[in-house]
Structures are given as structure tokens and as C-alpha cells.
């Protein structure tokens, strides 16, 4: 089946199709979900590309393994996947605890030649630096809410906490980020206040 013919098919339908042996469904899911999984893992792991790739591959492997037993309507595929990524990242962060922030490699500088691209990169890098300084749960909640664009009830499922706790974590996380980046307005392209 052509991949472009699958763009309207839900993640769940594709996963069930893969569970029934449809290799085309796996390709479509890979192309659709890997960028999200990799982005989330990378942000959780301080921009460490190699670690994030390992986490992304492991999370997708676990998705393939559950495909055959996936029960329709029980969970959102993306929520399930973010939860797996979240747990894998937490494990790696625990193992790496004690490694200084300086030892974590800088995010790779791929393209971005245009001026706006450079500014976006500068902003993203500054944000990542500030995110890395947040407590892990706050960082996770802020990334899921404000970068991955998830709804609070879904974040609550991913983090295994209540919706109110999610709201509290994101609010505190945002306040902390706003304070940490206050002195870098000019660098970020904002008017100095």
C-alpha cells in the first residue's frame, strides 16, 4: 500500500494492521511517529542525539511487540509511546546522574542558514539549556504540554499522575524557565526590558 494513502488512517488502525502482518503499516507508523519520539527523547536527555536515537529505537521496538495484542480503544498509541519514552529516559538519566552538563554533547547543528533559522536555533538551544536545569518531572510536563502539544489528561496518563498535578508542574516549570531566561532577552531576539 502506498504510504501517502495511509495519511488519513489513525495510528491505532495502522498498529492493528501491522499486528496482522501489514508491513506497509509499520513503515507509515515509523515515518509518522519516529520524529516525535526522537524529539521528545532528545529534549528529555539534554539534546544527546545518540542516546535519544537508542531510546527512539527501543520505544518503537516495544510498540512492534505489543501490536499483536493491542486492544482497540484502550489507549492512544502516542500516549502509550510517550510513556515508554518517558520511562526509558528516566532510566538513562538515573544511570547518567553525576555526569556534568558540560559532558553532555551539544545538539547537532545541521542546517539553518537563513537568519530566522539561526534565531530559532539560538532560541531552541537556550530553551534546552534552561529545560535541562529544571527538575525532571517539571521538564517532562513542560515538554509534553508546550513542545509536544499534548493535552493535560494525556500528560497525566503518560506521567501517571492527576491532571491537577500536571497543571501544577507545567505552571511551576514555565515560571522557572521565564526566570532563568530573563537575562537573555537580547540574545533571544526579544526587546530588552
Amino acid at each position: 500500500m502506498a504510504l501517502d494513502a495511509l495519511t488519513d488512517v489513525s495510528d491505532e488502525a495502522l498498529l492493528i494492521a501491522f499486528g496482522n502482518g501489514d508491513a506497509g503499516a509499520a513503515r507509515a507508523l515509523t515515518l509518522r511517529l519516529t520524529p516525535r519520539v526522537l524529539g521528545f527523547a532528545s529534549r528529555m536527555l539534554g539534546g544527546d542525539r545518540a542516546e535519544a536515537e537508542d531510546v527512539a529505537q527501543e520505544a518503537m521496538l516495544r510498540l512492534w511487540k505489543v501490536a499483536g495484542e493491542w486492544r482497540q480503544g484502550e489507549a492512544k498509541v502516542t500516549t502509550w509511546l510517550y510513556r515508554v519514552v518517558s520511562n526509558l529516559c528516566t532510566d538513562r538519566l538515573r544511570k547518567a546522574r553525576g555526569v556534568g552538563i558540560d559532558q553532555i554533547p551539544e545538539p547537532e547543528d545541521d542546517a539553518a542558514s537563513a537568519e530566522t533559522g539561526l534565531q530559532d536555533k539560538a532560541r531552541a538551544a537556550a530553551l534546552q539549556g534552561a529545560l535541562d536545569e529544571l527538575p525532571e518531572r517539571q521538564r517532562q510536563a513542560v515538554i509534553l504540554r508546550h513542545i509536544e502539544g499534548m493535552a493535560n489528561p494525556d500528560i497525566a496518563v503518560v506521567m501517571d499522575i492527576g491532571v491537577e498535578a500536571v497543571e501544577s508542574l507545567t505552571a511551576r516549570g514555565k515560571r522557572a524557565l521565564a526566570a532563568k531566561l530573563a537575562g537573555r532577552r537580547v540574545e533571544l531576539g526579544y526587546e530588552d526590558g
Binding site: 501491522f18 526522537l38 518503537m60 521496538l61 547537532e108 530559532d120
Partner: peptide
Amino acid sequence: GLFAAARSTGPEPSGDLLARIMGDA
């Protein structure tokens, strides 16, 4: 503005990573 910048500059999966994931599938 910072969150939007983070979204637009997210890491793109390499062809090698996609191939490994599809290989697992």
C-alpha cells in the same frame, strides 16, 4: 516563541535510524 522555535528545530530522524526501526518491524 521559544517553544515554537524548539518545535521547528526538532531533531530529524536519520535514514539509518528509520531503517533500523523498520528492520525491527
